[in-house]
């Protein structure tokens, strides 16, 4: 067929621009991942604001006029044979007040295992105001066969939390991390071995 039109300079320029656009959009798709994490961190969606430490503002005032009930809940993902429970079902906390609570963990899988607790906070509208200074969920945790530990969480609720908020839930899902294990072997940070 000789119906082909030679690519003119004009065509070449346009094609180059469009191909660059396509490549950019492919890259943009991957950029959505960090973007999503940043947005989630800002709005507190799906625990993204609760998986890293926050600094406490030294001027933070405890607002004793309000009390917020914080529920704790745990979920074992898949068929993970772990005992993992909060030692208190719930506590009452004033905004701005730092609290320490414990979760109890026991490896019943019969083998050494690395686990990761993924935090999640509800309601979505208030999630970003629950902040942690220390938590076992910041890193993976290595458990020997049959090992037991108490896992502390230091947290506070930012006094800027919306007035309507009366209840919150801090929830952890415990995952078997064997497939996503990091290079270092043993993680025991942020826990009290029993």
């Amino acid at each position: 067929m000789n119906t082909k039109i030679p690519a003119t300079k004009n065509n070449k320029r346009l094609i180059t621009i469009l191909v660059c656009g396509v490549i950019f959009m492919f890259g943009f798709c991957y950029m959505l991942v960090p973007l999503y994490n940043i947005v989630c961190k800002q709005i507190g969606f799906n625990g993204k604001s609760a998986n890293s430490a926050t600094l406490v503002n030294p001027n933070m005032q405890v607002d004793t006029s309000r009390t917020i009930k914080v529920d704790f809940s745990t979920t074992m993902h898949g068929n993970l044979n772990f005992k993992f429970i909060p030692l208190q079902r719930h506590i009452e906390v004033h905004p701005g007040e730092r609290k320490l609570i414990y979760f109890y963990a026991e490896n019943k899988t019969g083998k050494d295992i690395t686990v990761q607790a993924i935090p999640s906070i509800t309601p979505n509208d208030a999630a970003r105001f629950l902040k942690k200074t220390e938590c076992f969920c910041f890193t993976q945790q290595y458990f020997f066969k049959g090992e037991k530990a108490d896992m502390p969480v230091y947290f506070f609720i930012d006094p800027a939390v919306p007035k309507e908020t009366k209840e919150m839930t801090l929830s952890y899902t415990l995952f078997d991390e064997t497939e996503f294990i990091k290079k270092q072997k043993h993680f025991t940070k942020g826990r009290i071995d029993l």
């Binding site: 798709c29 999503y36 993924i118 497939e179």
Partner: peptide, 13 residues
């Protein structure tokens, strides 16, 4: 979610 991802992200993408 186990490795720090999020199934909701899939839906966004």
């Amino acid at each position: 979610a186990a490795g720090g991802g999020d199934p909701s992200l899939f839906q966004h993408v």
